[in-house]
Design a protein around this nucleic acid. Sequence first.
DNA 1: CGCAAGATTGAAGTACGTCAATTCCAGTGG
DNA 2: CCACTGGAATTGACGTACTTCAATCTTGCG
Lengths: 244, 244
Amino acid sequence: MLSPLVRKLEHFTALSEEDKRAIQAFTGEIRQFGPREDIICEGDKPDHVHLILEGWAARYKLLPDGDRPIMAYLIPGDLCDINVTLLDKMDHSIGTLSPCRVAMISRDRLTAIMAESPTLSRALWWSTLVDEAILREWLVTVGHRPANKRIAHFICEMMLRTRAVGLSQDNGFSMPLTQEELADTMGMTPVHANRMLKELRDQQLIEMGRRRMIVKDLPRLMDFADFNPNYLHQQAAGLQREYT
Amino acid sequence: MLSPLVRKLEHFTALSEEDKRAIQAFTGEIRQFGPREDIICEGDKPDHVHLILEGWAARYKLLPDGDRPIMAYLIPGDLCDINVTLLDKMDHSIGTLSPCRVAMISRDRLTAIMAESPTLSRALWWSTLVDEAILREWLVTVGHRPANKRIAHFICEMMLRTRAVGLSQDNGFSMPLTQEELADTMGMTPVHANRMLKELRDQQLIEMGRRRMIVKDLPRLMDFADFNPNYLHQQAAGLQREYT
DNA sequence: CGCAAGATTGAAGTACGTCAATTCCAGTGG
DNA sequence: CCACTGGAATTGACGTACTTCAATCTTGCG
């Protein structure tokens, strides 16, 4: 089975067999986390880079009023903080949502690999640029779109992101989030998130099963959410393969 | 006069005289922009990296409904898209707010400089990490703080950022923004932004002059805004000098 | 079976948006 | 020096999207 990171990077550029082997070799020390465990906490001095192999995790902060805003989701193939070891200490935490398998990569290992392959190096930097682009798009969404479109936009994004790493089937994907976590992401109340999800269901745009999101009409959902996939920068190389 | 970029990077690490000279040498081709001109547009293929030398610029997008969300402010010393040349095309635009002097740096030039000095290379990567941290904090602010605290939080941030590059005096800094631009940043209406500014003035937290923001009581403002400066990662080396 | 966590729904309150009028002010021309 | 002008700031009245509180219902799981 192909590493999700390889699948993701191939959306940006072609990788040699050697590059792929180097990525597979990342997976030296692997740790298993349960649901809702912290991978790394605010204030910690980061010493490893984490690669999600299985499950969903999230970046979050804790606010004085008890709020727990979520600033990013990390799914298989996502590298948390590729160069965060430069910083003195973490300014946010990363915690699992579902059970997760995580590869712990030492900084030295990573820089060695990047020094060896310029292609891989470029591909990894590309992935950090995409992470930043996602952050910008979320900022737009949270600040400037009404609640129903916020949710719809998020579903579109996760549909494309899971598809890019081979984790979607039949127009659906596994989404191990509670409505409260979704609400913390979109800057709204769980109650309101629930109502907006119902609205999307009533409009025949989505269906929800147990921890599963099914997109009944992606073009219409994208249109409704005013979703422009450009910011994911997936247009390259191997993309068409995913649609077969 | 010291380059604002040098001042900024020195908050992270000490720089050799040689490193400083290399940064000064950035400023080969300089372009002057008027207020509200685009430096680079969504859809463009980026070929240069831009370094702001003077004035304020902003990252923004245009939404179908005519909204114009602002996702970041770029002030002197800020490097726009240090490695954006990796991307096929811009997913957002960068435009000036005030008149700006901007250094246009070719990608080749930048990579050559970074290859020569590991220290400088690390320092520049650090600055991109800070940019990302700011984006995360804005996401928290816009999604999870009430309007009055959003404005207050923003003022605290810009106070510290301008101070870090030597652009604040007497507890104040030049802020060439209309209230509409401020509102587009914080995800609210210009009318509401106005009222929240008034509230902060009434509470003796700030004063406003012509295009100038004066912070009357920074500790109290930070407390009010629930502002934790950690995310700016300014705690290093030369910081204390700024307070004298 | 029974519990606890999460999802769903209703009713009432509020922060913020909308619309529109008025005032302020920097720049320009007389 | 002053009148004129257009963009921005300010204020008021009113509407609404979202929150809050709280009850009920569903579902996974020991």
